[in-house]
């Protein structure tokens, strides 16, 4: 049986942009709080009392697992309800679920992080992990694409990462005004400016599926092996533990076997429409 949710309290709430907000949560039971650990790229099922549950990736730093950060877009019944919660309010939390990013495999390698839209949220924790242990990795490329320039989240954070040694930050917007300092177009337009050794580089990618397909194909063409291109997928998830069946993609349970998969493993499944 699905384990009971744990009660969590909202510590802080920040409005990122209209309809997009970040909650920092703390489990109210101190033993649960002590026991809770997660890896970047994992997710929790958040339960809104009387409404339902949604899978939301964890954006915060795994070193401070007592404060669990979630950036949420208000799009459905549950997330619109979560949007109305304020500090001190309670919700339920089950997790963490899923495998997370292969950050151990990133050591001594050039890293390319490519994200699209809110796809940057599941990778934010991973980028912070890399930056905090900067010396263990090769050149770090951070590429973020948004539809509209106004959609860019955490602008200061990108500017901060851009100042780190041996780090390249590239940002693209499909549509932008005249004051937009970065590229207008797609993230894949920026790939000539990446700095990496294809023989050893590793890719972490998250965003809309069409964008991830294009990114994976183009970086593979640039010589990166398919088993070192990692994508974080989304599917309908209700249990989080590979039982309810909704997240199946071919033989994979995305919630349990993923959500992070290598391109080698997942390309044949992703290339079939409506799979």
């Amino acid at each position: 049986m699905t384990a009971l949710p744990m009660e969590a309290e909202i510590l802080t709430r920040r409005e990122e942009s209209p309809g997009l907000f970040t909650l920092h949560l703390r489990l109210t039971d101190s033993a649960a709080q002590q026991a809770y650990r997660f890896r970047p790229g994992q997710f929790n099922m958040l339960y809104l009392y009387g409404v339902g549950e949604v899978p939301i990736s964890i954006v915060s730093d795994p070193r401070e697992a007592r404060h669990i950060g979630h950036t949420i877009r208000a799009v459905g019944r549950v997330t619109r309800g979560l949007e109305r919660l304020r500090p001190g309010d309670r919700l339920g939390l089950r997790g963490p679920f899923g495998n997370g990013w292969p950050l151990g495999d990133c050591e001594q390698r050039d890293v390319i992080v490519v994200t699209g839209g809110l796809g940057c949220a599941p990778v934010t924790g991973a980028v912070q992990y890399l930056m905090r242990r900067r010396e263990r990795f090769g050149h770090v490329n951070i590429v973020q694409g948004v539809k509209h320039a106004d959609d860019l989240l955490w602008r200061e954070q990108y500017e901060c990462w851009d100042r780190m040694p041996d780090t390249t930050v590239l940002i693209a917007a499909d549509e932008a005004g005249p004051l937009w300092p970065w590229h207008v177009g797609r993230v894949t337009d920026l790939f000539d400016r990446l700095r990496f050794d294809p023989a050893q580089a590793i890719v972490l990618c998250c965003g809309p599926e069409g964008m991830m397909l294009a990114v994976a194909e183009q970086l593979q063409e640039r010589g990166i092996a398919a088993e070192r291109i990692w994508l974080s997928l989304e599917r309908n998830m209700q249990c989080g533990i590979g039982l309810c069946g909704h997240c199946q993609l071919g033989p994979k349970f995305v919630c349990r076997d993923g959500p992070v998969f290598s391109w080698r493993e997942i390309a044949p499944l992703l290339r079939v429409r409506g799979r």
Partner: peptide
Amino acid sequence: ILFHARRDADGRLRFEAA
């Protein structure tokens, strides 16, 4: 039934196994 949830007057949640 997976579980029951209760919310008390000060907003605290309690979860009970089926």
